[in-house]
Design a protein around this nucleic acid. Structure first.
Length: 544
DNA sequence: GCCGTTTTCGGCCCGACTGTTTTCAGTCG
């Protein structure tokens, strides 16, 4: 399902592409058309970050509150909402085929060159470009020497076996391998990952690793390390904002340092760089220009939750349902991670495919947990279950069974397009439910979420003082950063859980924490940071 | 196109690389 916001964002991006192709102005940082292009691109990014329905924003008169949406772009959004079309878009892309724009992703092929290929050689898609590059006539194009042709041919080949953005776990494996190779060659603190990986984004397009040299010939390494790390960490929007602030202070920020005139006044550490511009050193997860500068000015930057704050994993599976390891082994894993308590929440009876527990098996599990705790084995265990929210909207166990549990995680595993909002809201209103597991149901890059109105889910969770999960599995990260941030703003508490089905899956907590931090969550927002006593008190109070 | 403690006009981040146009345009991150 493609949202209106995504549709408008694509249209704005296309308009920007088309303007660049048609623009007579060469340098997009000079001249008015270039800034217009940037304005469309920024607006497209802002719209993609939006969790609110576009129609709702418009109805509430809040379109203009979005950064980068002024009178003209707001009017275009409204035109799209009213008619499904946008005159400016139709004009911009007229006579330019859709396939043409996709060629702009090719490294080394920008709008100017593409325009040339399109107009002079009739190129309109990848196959056409490939053929054109083999045509001797291509060398007659202005600025098209043998090296550029070779490079473009390589780009086409790479595109043909193109990789998508990777998930965090794959990125982490690559980073660790690269760092492992580099470490013997340089000082241990001279290698660090940067880029979107360091910011903890849910997908990563490429890996940036910053390496310092002890070669005295490269003597900027020490003096510029912090500036380079800051620069290569990004995000681009964050850096643009930072540099604009610096400029107004008569300073210049680049990857080489902070400069007043010719003099470098900062650059050794990131703290130094930010301090020179009068700003705190933002945690990388916050560097998206989505309010961190305003919060810094207001003194309201969050004290982000840390992995060390986590005392429990509250959504773990064992081989009683579809996990691969027995209870004892999973708990050993929890001990190794320093947890004081944990909740094994195996599937419920309707989840046949996952070997869900029926009433009797669940009650036996409860007895086993009581015995475990009576023997003072660690971590201390909560009696829990991941209870299906059935197609009808009922919970998968009767109340007398649910009442026996310390913790009920209710999740949708069936009927993804069937009244999901109503079913989740009914679960949130149920007096024996504590947490909604993976509330959107998305699988990153593979499956859109359920047909669910998360705004209503958050509102409902706030009203009933219920908890929403950040499922820490790298393929889910559900709630996402933007939705979890919205939940926090609505006063909803969050559980960060791995949903581990094997011992090593318990390590996914790190991905959940990155998402939590990107959502601006503090220790107090995350129930996994509570002591066992405080957690039980909270869970019981929810049933009063 | 947007935006405002340089405010309704005139700004808008910065630097590197590449190839080729003998002084710089296009592209990228």
């Amino acid at each position: 399902m493609i949202t209106a916001a995504e549709n408008v964002a694509r249209m704005f991006d296309r308009i920007a592409d088309a303007l660049e192709m048609r623009s007579m102005c060469s340098d997009k940082l000079k001249g008015e058309p270039g800034f217009r292009v940037n304005a469309y691109r920024r607006a497209a990014r802002v719209l993609r970050e939006q969790t609110d329905e576009l129609a709702r924003l418009d109805a509430d008169g809040r379109l203009r509150e979005l950064p980068g949406i002024g009178a003209a772009l707001a009017a275009k959004v409204r035109e799209y909402l009213a008619t499904g079309r946008m005159k400016k878009y139709d004009e911009a892309v007229a006579d330019l085929p859709d396939e043409l724009f996709r060629l702009l992703d090719l490294p080394g092929l920008g709008p100017k060159t593409l325009k040339l290929f399109h107009e002079r050689l009739g190129v309109s898609d990848l196959a056409g470009l490939k053929a054109a590059l083999e045509d001797p006539a291509v060398a007659d194009l202005p600025g098209m020497g043998p090296d550029r042709i070779t490079n473009l041919k390589r780009s086409v080949r790479l595109r043909e076996m193109a990789g998508e953005r990777m998930l965090l776990n794959e990125a982490r494996e690559l980073v660790e391998r690269a760092v492992g190779h580099l470490c013997p060659l340089v000082a241990p603190d001279a290698v660090t990952p940067a880029g979107s990986y360091r910011r903890g984004r849910e997908t990563v397009g490429d890996i940036d690793i910053l390496v310092a040299s002890d070669d005295p010939e490269v003597n900027l390494a020490q003096a510029a390390w912090g500036a380079a790390l800051q620069y290569f960490t990004g995000s681009e929007d964050h850096n643009v904002r930072l540099r604009g602030i610096a400029r107004r202070l008569g300073l210049k920020v680049s990857e080489y340092g902070v400069f007043r005139g010719e003099e470098r006044i900062a650059g050794r550490t990131e703290e130094e760089v930010y301090a020179a511009v009068g700003l705190p050193c933002f945690p990388p997860e916050l560097r998206e220009n989505t309010g961190e500068f305003e919060a810094a000015e207001a003194g309201s930057l969050p004290e982000l939750v840390r992995l060390e704050d986590i005392k429990a994993d509250l959504h773990i599976h064992t081989n009683r349902s579809d996990g691969s390891a027995p209870l004892e082994a999973m708990m050993k894993g929890c001990r190794a991670r320093g947890y004081t308590h944990a909740a094994v929440a195996d599937h419920s009876v309707s989840a046949h495919y996952a070997g869900g527990l029926d009433r009797d098996r669940l009650l036996r599990h409860c007895d086993a947990v009581d015995e475990w705790n009576a023997k003072k084995r660690r971590p201390w265990l909560l009696k829990a279950s991941e209870v299906d929210i059935t197609r009808s909207g009922a919970l998968d166990f009767p109340d007398d069974v649910l009442a026996r549990l310390d913790l009920v995680v209710a999740s949708v595993h069936q009927g993804f397009r069937h009244n999901v909002t109503e079913r989740i809201c009914a679960a949130l209103a149920h007096p024996l439910v504590h947490i909604i597991g993976h509330p959107s149901g998305r699988i990153i890059g593979k499956r859109d979420g359920y047909a669910v109105d998360l705004d209503r889910v958050i509102e409902c969770a706030a009203r009933h003082r219920r908890i929403l999960e950040i499922n820490a599995f790298y393929g889910r990260l559900d709630l996402s950063d933007t939705w979890a941030r919205k939940a926090r703003e609505a006063g909803v508490r969050i559980a960060v859980n791995t949903d581990a089905h094997a011992i090593e899956d318990l390590d996914w907590m790190r991905y959940g924490l990155l998402t939590a931090r990107r959502a601006w969550l503090e220790k107090k927002d995350v129930i996994n940071t509570l002591s066992r006593t405080a957690l039980l008190k909270l869970l019981r109070s929810m049933r009063d």
